[in-house]
Computed example of a mutant assay.
Amino acid sequence: MLVALGGDGTMLRVARAVASSRVPILGVNLGTLGFLTTCGFADLPETLAALKAGECWVESRHLIQARRSSRPRQRPELALNDFVISRGPTPRLIELELSVDGETLTRYRGDGLIISSPTGSTAYSLAAGGAVVSPQAEVFALTPICPHTLSNRSVIVRLGAVIEVRLLTHGVATFFSADGQVGTEIEVNERITVQRSRHAACLVRRPGASFFQTLRQKLGWSGSAVEAGDR
């Protein structure tokens, strides 16, 4: 087991670094949100006691991978949350062509596109207006960033799909990033192919922990929780 001290950024880096080993990760939140972590620092003794008693469990989260046409021999980039293609500091629109399983879906004109895993649906994709997706749902969320239209919305496709994005815009610096941490500039007409990775992150969970409980506690979800006695 690996113990990660930090916040969600630390969890994302660790998940990518140990992706091939499937080692369980116990995250101790020292940051602000800690959506992916197991517990806060104050709860660590209780969590370790539960772990020793065999009461904790391991949740598997899918990673996704991306290949760039300009770097065919490079290993695919991995992400736990998302891949983002976005314009640089110049305040100009970029145009992206999006295909799913070889079929052209649409062209986006805006600030960029987020390709999110189920885990990443509560990160940048959520802030951009995307849907909240349960981590057990085997889907991608494709969420445009500030699209210049009244009709574009987040699109949900199966996690087994092959997603391809091509940059069409000349003269505007455009960047590709993994989990908001690993970023490089991309070229016009470059194609980025995203699909499910065979790797997964194994996150240690405390007894009774659930995704929806975390959603209410960490993100201040305004929905009303229904207690068993109120039914």
Results as ranks from 00 to 15, higher is better:
R153Q: 09
S222Y: 00
N29D: 02
L105H: 12
H170M: 03
S99G: 04
A178Q: 06
G171Q: 05
E97Q: 15
V162H: 03
R61F: 12
V18A: 08
A123I: 06
A127C: 07
I25W: 00
S117N: 02
D43K: 08
C202I: 06
R68L: 14
I192Q: 09
I64A: 07
G120A: 03
V226Y: 01
I115E: 02
S69M: 13
G34S: 11
D82R: 06
A201F: 00
G183N: 11
V100L: 04
S70R: 15
L142R: 08
L33R: 10
T149M: 07
N152M: 15
V23L: 08
C146Y: 06
G112S: 02
T214M: 12
A209L: 04
G110M: 10
A127F: 01
V204M: 11
A173I: 03
V28I: 04
R75Q: 13
L215R: 01
V157F: 00
A137M: 10
P135Y: 14
M11P: 12
I114P: 01
E190D: 08
P144S: 09
W57K: 07
V58T: 14
R13F: 00
S210P: 01
C56V: 15
A49T: 15
F212N: 07
G208A: 12
V132M: 12
R205A: 08
E59Y: 02
G6M: 02
P76F: 03
N152D: 09
A137E: 05
E97I: 04
G112D: 03
E77C: 09
S197L: 05
L159V: 08
T32C: 04
Q65V: 07
T193Y: 03
T193K: 09
V162A: 10
S70T: 15
R158T: 13
L150D: 12
L2T: 08
G110Y: 13
A137V: 12
P118Q: 05
L30C: 06
A50S: 14
P24T: 11
F212G: 04
S222H: 11
G110H: 07
S117A: 04
S20D: 13
A127M: 08
R75A: 09
V188K: 02
V84G: 07
P89C: 10
F83D: 08
I64V: 09
R231Q: 06
F83E: 04
V194G: 01
L44S: 14
D179Q: 12
H148C: 04
R191L: 13
F35C: 11
L36A: 01
R206A: 04
V100Q: 09
G88E: 01
D43V: 05
G110K: 03
V139H: 00
A209I: 11
T214S: 11
L126H: 05
S224N: 12
R13S: 15
V84H: 06
S151R: 12
E59F: 03
L30M: 13
S117V: 05
G9I: 06
T214F: 01
W57F: 12
G180P: 07
I156S: 03
S134Y: 02
V23G: 00
R71Y: 11
G27T: 00
D230E: 15
L203A: 05
L126F: 10
L159F: 06
Q213Y: 09
A201G: 14
E95L: 02
L105P: 00
